[in-house]
C-alpha cells in the first residue's frame, strides 16, 4: 500500500515523461515543416537567403519555445512540485 506522497511522486514522474514526449514531438514536426518551407524558398530565390534564414531563425525559436515550456513544466513537476509535502 503506497502512501499519497509516493503515489503523487510516481504520477508526477510519469506525467513529466509524457509532457516532454508530446511536447518535443509536436514542435519537432513543426520545425521540420518550417525548415522544408525555408529550404524550398531559398532554392527558388537564392538571393533572398539572408532574409529567409533570419526569419527562419526567429520562427524556429518561437516554435521551439513551446518545447521549452513543456520542459519547464516537466522540471517543475520533478523538482519543484507544489503538491508534494
Amino acid at each position: 500500500m503506497m502512501d499519497s506522497n509516493t503515489l503523487l511522486s510516481a504520477i508526477s514522474i510519469v506525467t513529466a515523461g509524457l509532457t516532454v514526449m508530446v511536447g518535443s514531438v509536436a514542435p519537432a514536426l513543426g520545425e521540420g515543416k518550417a525548415v522544408v518551407a525555408a529550404l524550398d524558398a531559398i532554392a527558388r530565390q537564392p538571393e533572398a537567403a539572408s532574409t529567409i534564414s533570419r526569419t527562419l531563425f526567429v520562427g524556429m525559436a518561437m516554435v521551439e519555445s513551446t518545447a521549452i515550456y513543456c520542459l519547464v513544466v516537466a522540471l517543475v513537476l520533478l523538482f519543484a512540485n507544489p503538491f508534494l509535502g
Binding site: 525559436a61 519555445s65 521549452i68 515550456y69 520542459l71 519547464v72 522540471l75
Partner: peptide
C-alpha cells in the same frame, strides 16, 4: 511571460 520563460528555459536547460 513567454519572452521570459523562453530565455530562462533555453539557458537553464543547457546548464542542467
Amino acid at each position: 511571460l513567454a519572452l521570459a520563460v523562453r530565455l530562462f528555459g533555453n539557458v537553464m536547460s543547457g546548464q542542467m
